[in-house]
Amino acid sequence: MDRIKFSAAVTLIALSFARPALADDTADALTVFKEYVARSDRFDVAIADLYADDAVIKAKRLGPDGRMQTFTFTGRQWKALIPQAIPLAQQLDERNNFQDVSVKPSDTGIMITARRYSRIEDSTTPWAILVTKQQTGDWKISAEIIESRP
């Protein structure tokens, strides 16, 4: 077998193994997303367990004056806020509905984007999470971008 044919054969073999792994990664990331939605719907503080300690959360809020404010939290900070925020969300019956969900592999993990409808805000805003495989083998949210409007 000449070099070109050999190289092509090796590439095809490598790609055949890579595709199932990528499909598995996407399925694992979608499992995290589905669990995120389920825990959110149940007002379950265990949603915090889905975040990596070193996650970066960017919460953008459009103020009444039209200016966008951005707040950045680490995963640890966000996880500490969740037990305080969940009872308030439950009291207000805050519900989110995710539409146009899209999944795209990136260099660091699986990016999941959607349009998030907030019942209490009565608005739809962009939303995204990056789900990455941790050293432990678990998949966690390592980044999230949330937008809200009054």
Rank of each mutant, 00 (worst) to 15 (best):
K34W: 02
Q90F: 03
S40L: 07
K58V: 11
S40F: 13
R67D: 14
A38R: 00
V37A: 15
A46E: 14
D41W: 09
K60C: 15
D49F: 09
T74P: 06
A38F: 02
K79D: 12
D53E: 04
P83E: 06
D41L: 00
I82P: 04
R61F: 12
K58M: 14
M68R: 13
D41S: 09
I82W: 03
T70H: 02
D41P: 11
V37E: 14
S40A: 12
L50R: 02
A89T: 05
L92V: 07
T70M: 08
Q69R: 14
G75D: 00
K58F: 08
V45N: 00
G66Y: 04
Q69Y: 12
D41C: 02
F73A: 11
D54Q: 05
D44F: 05
V32R: 04
M68S: 12
L50Y: 07
A89K: 00
F33L: 07
A38S: 10
Y36C: 04
Q84W: 09
D65G: 10
E94D: 07
Q91L: 06
R76Y: 09
L62Y: 08
V32F: 07
K34N: 15
L81R: 07
D93C: 06
F33A: 09
K58D: 13
A52D: 13
R39S: 14
T70S: 11
N96L: 09
Q69W: 04
Q99A: 13
R61N: 14
L62P: 06
D93F: 03
D44C: 06
P87F: 02
F33I: 01
R76Q: 14
V45P: 05
D65K: 08
T74S: 15
T74L: 07
N96Q: 09
A48R: 01
P87M: 05
Q77N: 02
R76C: 04
R39I: 08
G66W: 01
Y51W: 13
E94R: 05
A85K: 05
L62H: 11
E94I: 00
Q69S: 15
G75R: 00
E94G: 08
G63I: 02
A52W: 01
K60W: 14
Y51T: 12
I47M: 08
Q99H: 10
E35F: 05
D93P: 00
P83W: 03
T70C: 03
A80P: 02
Q84H: 12
I47G: 07
A38Y: 00
F73E: 12
I47K: 06
G75Q: 03
A38D: 10
T74V: 08
R42E: 14
L81A: 12
G75C: 00
A55F: 06
L62G: 09
L62I: 12
Y36G: 06
I82L: 04
V32T: 11
L50G: 05
A80C: 10
P64F: 10
A46C: 07
A59F: 14
R42T: 11
P83A: 03
M68N: 11
Q99T: 13
V56M: 09
G75E: 03
Q91R: 02
R42I: 05
L50H: 01
P64E: 15
I47S: 07
T70K: 01
D49K: 04
D49H: 01
D41N: 06
R67M: 14
D41Q: 04
E35D: 15
L62F: 09
Q91V: 03
N96R: 11
T74E: 06
G66L: 03
I86H: 02
R39K: 15
F73H: 10
Q91A: 09
D53H: 10
Q77F: 06
